[in-house]
């Protein structure tokens, strides 16, 4: 058994080397396929990151009247935080709101003068709310509107809820995000299917050239596993070499494209992602290569082992 495995391994390596042209052709096709698969992976990553960034920019802001009692405000904050749809609720007190205002307009003398004229802090507290999903803003907004309506008209607590102003933008964004996600998953699926078919065909051609050899091996009494083994091993080797080559090609592209993505996607650097998640990317690329090479070889050789 061990002798057989050793012989199959040796035959696989020797075959890989002696059929260099056929090996090169298979590796090249497999490499292009893996390159494309990696591209869809990176685009998907960019898409996901930019969507999260966009989503995190969407929120509902609740502005309280300056006279509002701090306890009332805190109780509304607590009830908002208790909602299952809410991911994050950030409370800004009146004092902090004033500080932020001063910071923002520190170079605007007229505004600062007007502010200094006032005896009291004119700003109210506010809460910024982020939902877990875009679709949940509607219900959070409704909840807040009910709160607003339930307060007595003489002593309002909530001044404004700005969701309505953002509503259209939010709705549009959520539909765009959904469409992009659907489209990209369809494109990825089609690409991967095409990749499998192309790889299969190439390796089938490679093994087709060896069909005479296979029939001879059968005639001298080689068992199917003994014939199949070297071809399967070669398929695996094609996958490994192609995966490593595809990564080598991506590396300079990443160095070039990384800073550009950082500019465009608000701090997300694709090169940093490539380096940090290299072991994962390596595993996916080489793993996919091995899988495609192995399956294609197995299917192709099955044809010539009948009779």
């Amino acid at each position: 058994m061990i002798t057989a495995i050793r012989r199959i391994t040796k035959a696989g390596f020797v075959g890989f080397w002696r059929n260099a042209y056929v090996s090169l052709a298979s590796i090249f096709v497999l490499m292009v396929v893996l390159f494309v698969i990696a591209a869809t992976m990176f685009i998907d990553q960019l898409l996901t990151t930019s969507l999260t960034t966009l989503q995190s920019k969407v929120d509902i802001n609740v502005y309280f009247v300056p006279e509002a009692n701090e306890e009332d405000v805190k109780s509304i904050l607590a009830s908002v935080e208790a909602l299952p749809d809410v991911a994050l609720a950030t409370y800004t007190s009146r004092e902090v709101a004033l500080e932020k205002f001063r910071e923002k307009y520190k170079n605007n003398e007229i505004t600062m003068q007007a502010l200094n004229e006032l005896e009291d802090n004119p700003l109210g507290a506010n809460i910024a709310i982020q939902a877990k999903e875009l679709t949940q803003y509607e219900s959070i907004s409704q909840f807040l509107e009910e709160k607003q309506a339930s307060a007595s008209p003489q002593n309002p607590i909530i001044e404004t809820i700005n969701y309505d102003k953002n509503k259209e933008a939010i709705d549009k964004l959520s539909s765009v995000i959904k469409t992009v996600e659907k489209a990209s998953s369809v494109v990825t699926l089609v690409l991967i299917l095409a990749a499998i078919l192309i790889t299969f065909n190439t390796i089938r051609l490679a093994i087709y050239t060896a069909r005479e050899e296979i029939s001879i091996m059968r005639l001298v009494g080689a068992s199917n596993m003994f014939i199949r083994g070297p071809f399967l091993l070669q398929g695996i080797m094609y996958g490994i070499v192609a995966g490593v080559l595809a990564l080598l090609i991506w590396y300079p592209i990443m160095i070039w494209v990384g800073p550009k993505t950082e500019e465009f996607f608000d701090g997300f650097n694709l090169f940093t992602y490539f380096v940090n998640d290299f072991s994962y990317i390596f595993a996916v690329m080489v793993g996919t290569g091995i899988f495609l090479g192995f399956i294609s070889s197995a299917l192709a050789i099955a044809r010539y082992l009948r009779v």
Binding site: E212, E213, S215, I216, M217, R218, L219, V220, G221, A222, S223, N224
Partner: peptide, 17 residues
């Protein structure tokens, strides 16, 4: 395969690998 190992075969077109 076991059966074929009892027989040696020679062909007109040699059938070498």
């Amino acid at each position: 395969p076991h059966y074929r190992r009892k027989i040696g075969t020679v062909f007109q077109d040699f059938k070498l690998l």
